[in-house]
């Protein structure tokens, strides 16, 4: 961490970066937003926006379970529960009894209601409201270590599975004819999503986490003509929104996650207009 601190002091001698918590937050943004930009492309491709939203919502129950069991850092109970609910959704989806939308809706609202019920016992919900909007400035050195490990693992996994996942998402039978185990890759993808959403929820907030996944990719989609452009633009937009959102929220005293989302939304509006003009 010392290396990072002195690097920032050397390269970015700005007033707002004097505080250690801002240096931490900047590193956090630089680690989280590229992953969001990267994963978002496939989420938008597969029309899974609603799914990522429900992952965020189910985190409330994860926190509640952590409170009941008595874990200090609820991240592990959140991870456990979001992986559990992902598997549940996939299994029910494969049974093919109702549309995917309905299934996700059922699980998402149940998980959120359960979380609220448990956490609001004795009228104590307000102390958990930090999870609703997130607090990026509270990110600690040990959080950053976790985040760094997750960053490397996700990038490596994403590099290994992406091509096969793309084929499987376009036509499962086609993927199958080329020897791809469609189900394995679908599970891996949703698990990666569950992990990254859960890890970042305490800093970004339950209410807006899925917008952070969707907006950079959706903006990039407006102007990209192939997969490489799609990813490059998406990651760039996510990074720029992240850093500028952090700075603006510092000076404006606003919630960082929401500020980042607003800037991404501006990117979407601009690229949408570019798309209309370019045709």
């Amino acid at each position: 961490m010392h290396f990072w601190y002195s690097l920032v002091d050397l390269l970015l001698p700005f007033g707002w970066l004097q505080h250690a918590f801002m240096k931490n937050a900047l590193l956090g943004v630089l680690l989280v937003t590229p992953i969001f930009g990267l994963l978002g492309t496939m989420i938008v491709n597969n029309k899974m926006a609603f799914f990522s939203d429900s992952l965020g919502h189910s985190a409330l129950t994860g926190i509640a379970i952590g409170v009941i069991v008595g874990i200090k850092n609820p991240i592990w109970s959140m991870l456990f529960f979001s992986v559990l609910i992902t598997i549940a959704i996939l299994i029910v989806k494969e049974a093919n009894t109702a549309s995917t939308d309905t299934i996700i809706g059922v699980f998402s609202s149940t998980a959120m209601a359960l979380g609220i019920v448990i956490l609001s016992r004795n009228g104590g919900f307000t102390k958990y409201s930090v999870y609703l909007i997130g607090d990026l400035l509270s990110i600690s050195s040990s959080d950053l270590l976790t985040l760094g490990i997750v960053f490397v693992v996700v990038i490596v996994l994403w590099a290994v599975i992406f091509n096969k996942l793309l084929l499987a998402s376009m036509n499962p039978s086609l993927a199958r004819s080329r020897g791809i185990n469609v189900r394995l890759y679908e599970y891996l993808f949703t698990m990666i999503m569950a992990v990254i959403v859960t890890i970042s929820i305490q800093w970004v907030g339950i209410l807006i986490i899925s917008s952070l996944l969707i907006l950079p990719a959706a903006s990039s989609r407006n102007i990209a003509r192939n997969m490489r452009q799609y990813h490059v633009y998406s990651v760039l937009i996510a990074l720029i929104s992240g850093v500028s959102g952090l700075v603006l929220s510092y000076f404006g005293g606003t919630a960082t996650g929401a500020t980042i989302v607003l800037i991404s939304a501006v990117f979407f509006a601009v690229t949408f207009c570019m798309k209309l003009r370019l045709g």
Partner: peptide, 12 residues
């Protein structure tokens, strides 16, 4: 490229 190569096509 997605069908033929192992390198992720978003990279190269």
């Amino acid at each position: 490229a997605a069908a033929h190569t192992k390198l992720p096509i978003w990279f190269t």
